[in-house]
Amino acid sequence: MRLVEGKKGQTYTVKAINAEESLERRLRMLGLTDGSFISILGKKRCGSMVVKIRGTRFALGSAVSSAIEVGGETECRKL
């Protein structure tokens, strides 16, 4: 599933990033490597969300959250 379909308060594992090269590279450098965790802290109907990646909060636009392929939903753990 895509991160944009995720639920608030859940943590997912990153499976892939399907974005243009520059965005993908950017996300990777921020620590969004395959197998890393991403937690959804807040979400708007339009698909933009507040997430936590490796201990840091980021705001993502809907295009970004749609590009991240995730799996393995778990309760929000302390990252």
Partner: peptide
């Protein structure tokens, strides 16, 4: 619109 926002939210 691209909705490609990506910004850190500090504490």
């Amino acid at each position: 619109a691209e909705h490609s926002l990506l910004i850190e939210l500090p504490e």
